[in-house]
Amino acid sequence: MNRVQGLWDTSVGKKAVMAVTGLIMLAYLITHVLANLTVFQGPAKINAYSAFLHGTGGALWVARLVLIAALVLHVVAAAQFTARRRAARPVAYAAGREPQVSTFASRTIRWGGVLILIFIVYHLLHFTLGTVHPSFVEGDPYHNVAAGFGNPLVVVFYELALAALGLHLYHGIWSSGRSLGVSPPSPHPLKRQLAAVLSVLIWAGFAVIPIAVSAGALR
């Protein structure tokens, strides 16, 4: 088995691929949430950032392609892992298996991932392409955000998806270090302060905007 194959053909290798692609998307999410939060500084800031991004030309597309590739690998690996875990236990426990220490986040990561994937599609149609937006204005993200969360159903959907994202990150950030074999040994291996702090910050940074719009703080 050669090296590249070894990364994709064994479950340990593929987990490393998931970890790396997840970390790439995490890096993107951090810039995304920081950029989003400029919305609270008024239209000028965030619109200028948007203009800057679109002005980079090729670089934006390179970043987009990297993110799409990461997402595709992440999702394909997840789908294959789902099939593998199903095959690994063809007969379920008749009386059920009682989770002892696994977190809610880890147990819901698969369906949460599906929700996040649906959300990504919707989110692109909503704020990038504007197809499902009531009054999309190219180049005016401030307006798009303020107008885009007029519908309470949209806000609820966003909040649900962002909750799933927060949970996804809470397990994913922590486990990626272990999947890549870089986490230091710990007397309490299930503890995950860094992942907790990061995932809460990212989740809160995203989640606050739809609520702020609904509450009338952004208009």
């Binding site: 593998r84 095959a87 690994a88 002892q100 220490v101 696994s102 880890s106 147990r107 922590w174 999947s179």
Partner: peptide, 14 residues
């Protein structure tokens, strides 16, 4: 045919 590790931590507990 064993499954992958998702780091649930259940193994350590068991």
């Amino acid at each position: 045919g064993f499954g992958q590790c998702s780091l649930y931590g259940e193994c350590q507990e068991a």
